[in-house]
Computed example of a mutant assay.
Amino acid sequence: MESVSAVAAGIRAARKEAGLTQEDLANLAETSERTIRAIETGTGNPSLRAVAAAANVLGLRLTVTR
Rank of each mutant, 00 (worst) to 15 (best):
D24A: 01
L62T: 00
A14E: 04
R12A: 13
T35L: 06
A26C: 08
T41N: 10
R15N: 04
R37V: 07
L28R: 13
A9L: 11
S32I: 09
G44Y: 02
A50Y: 08
T41S: 14
R49P: 05
R49Y: 10
A6H: 09
A14V: 01
G19T: 01
R37C: 13
I36W: 13
A50W: 05
V4P: 11
A26V: 00
Q22R: 12
V57G: 03
Q22A: 13
R61G: 12
E17L: 14
I39N: 06
T41P: 06
E40C: 09
I39D: 03
E30S: 14
R12T: 04
E30F: 07
Q22G: 06
A6N: 15
A38S: 10
G59F: 02
A55Y: 01
S32D: 13
E40G: 05
A18P: 11
R61K: 15
A55K: 00
T41Y: 09
V57I: 14
A26S: 02
D24T: 02
I36R: 02
A26F: 04
A14W: 06
E30A: 14
V51S: 01
E33M: 12
G44F: 04
I36C: 02
I36G: 04
D24Q: 06
A38H: 15
G44E: 01
A52Q: 13
S47N: 10
S3Q: 12
T63M: 11
A18G: 07
L58H: 08
S5T: 14
A50M: 11
D24M: 08
A53Q: 10
P46C: 04
A14D: 05
R61A: 11
S47M: 06
A13K: 15
A14G: 04
E33Y: 14
L48Q: 07
V57T: 06
V4G: 04
L28M: 12
E23C: 07
E17K: 14
A54T: 03
G59N: 07
R49C: 07
A14C: 07
E40P: 05
T21W: 14
T43W: 12
P46T: 06
S5N: 14
A8C: 00
A6R: 10
T63N: 15
A14R: 05
S47F: 03
L62Y: 02
E17A: 15
V4E: 08
A54G: 03
E40N: 10
L25K: 00
S47H: 08
S3R: 14
A55M: 03
R34L: 10
V51K: 02
T31N: 08
T43C: 10
G10D: 01
V7E: 03
T43V: 12
A54Y: 00
L58I: 10
N56G: 14
A18I: 09
